[in-house]
Nucleic acid binder design. Sequence first.
RNA 1: GGCGCUAUCGUCUAGGGGACUAGGACACGGCCCUCUCAAGGCUGGAACACGGGUUCGAAUCCCGUUAGCGCUACCA
Length: 485
Amino acid sequence: MSAPTPPRLRFAPSPTGYLHVGGARTALFNWLWARKTGGTFLLRTEDTDKARSTDESTAAIFRGLEWLGLDWDEDVVYQGANVARHKADAERLVENGSAYLDFTTVVELERLRADADARKEPFRFDRRLARWTPDEIAQKLAAGEPYTIRFRVPDGTTAWDDIVHGRISFDNKEIEDFIVLRSDGTPIYNLAVVSDDIAMRITIVMRGDDHISNTPKQILLYQALGAPLPQFAHVPMIHGTDGKKLSKRRDAAAVGDWEYKGILPTAMANFLALLGWSPGGDLEVMMPEEMLAHFSLERLHRKAAIFDTQKLEWMNGQHLSRRPLEEVLPRVTDALIRHEVATAERLAADPAWTAHLVDQLRVRARTIEEVVTQARPYLLDEIEYDDAAVAKALLKDRAASADILHATREALVNAPAWTAEALEPALRTLAESRGLTAGKIFTPLRVAVTGLAVSPGIFDVLTLIGRERSLERLARTLDMLATTT
RNA sequence: GGCGCUAUCGUCUAGGGGACUAGGACACGGCCCUCUCAAGGCUGGAACACGGGUUCGAAUCCCGUUAGCGCUACCA
């Protein structure tokens, strides 16, 4: 087996918002391939559109990547810092004849476009519009007239073998002479991308398939600049439930939204990966190491996928249970504190207790938010009683409930110790002596001490809540049954 | 409109000419387990867009139709 030079890949977001799940997935694929092959994963912000780019957005994107566990190599490349080279490249294109100066103004262009529109004809820039004699050009230049630099698209066809789509080809007739340098001397996207990708020695350009139609232009640019072509891999889009692009308003399209909703980064990465790639076979839940082991470019999909929130949450439930407790613990405690269910001091005071609590709750939750909700009775002094649970477990027959709860409390009070080992026989004996199934005892007790219909096993609940507080809640429930109507 | 990409259950997918009575997962229903819930196990309904080819044989290959999506800026 030969040892090819390791690939260099990059993720190049434009910092005009938050990290979009589609972008995050593209980044993930680039990262996966770089890490798997011993290659390099670079980051570049495409901030040449100064009107829309912001530092906050840049920071948010970096944060999102870090949260997902995607680390990058070398220094981040800020495209805006390379405008001098972009400009020089554009001028080089003019010098070698592959581009030309165009003095057509924006206003004229708009008019031309409107005319074509009125005639219902497609507008494409006509090279003849920019046919000035050398004298005229010198004159305009001397007069300081603004101009753009346009690429002279050659005849023929432009094609490439896309890693995910196979051969794609475009008739150059379909490509207009596009602008590469604005009249203010700043580069247009396609030039900046190519110039930077060449400078960064990128060998695989992996990005969303909405860039397929930019690719022939970029290939032409590589060729005119005399640079070797990278390989291209166009991965499919991620759509919302309506089959269209994810909408920020409706779909929680930012990865930060999911972090906030209590999704684990490994679950997010796992889910996202499966939206544009599959390992083959029935494997779905994968830890990061497994994804790395199975990932391959050959199994990238061609079809756009719809973002299914329910499956994400299911996936998260899987990760919540399977990831090491040390990893989920801090995320849960942060959420507990943020929701004011507990203070940092309280949680730190008895780390073993906290860990046990989280461990008990995480297996039956799908999101961290659910863990927080379930944790309330164990951390708060004042608990809320779920009406439906109370109605079902206690109020159907108040007298009987009061009777059972009273006997239960007695058995608990007299138990030799407040441990699962001591409590369980006590309650099972009680059930037996009364000819009841254990559930008839456990269920009212659960509602009495937690206020909820859902909880871990009752003996974990009792020991987690503690003797004093359990007995007190029992007493209060008894009072309630006796007084309220 | 032009160009391009795509097309298997509601959704994510396996499948790469015969192993397909089309497999798995999410969601939904039923059953089991069980102190509740979750998890887990079993189970039910649910798909090859359509039409032509090629072939002894097509979900799989080719062409067309249709549909969806993307691009079509001195945005990225």
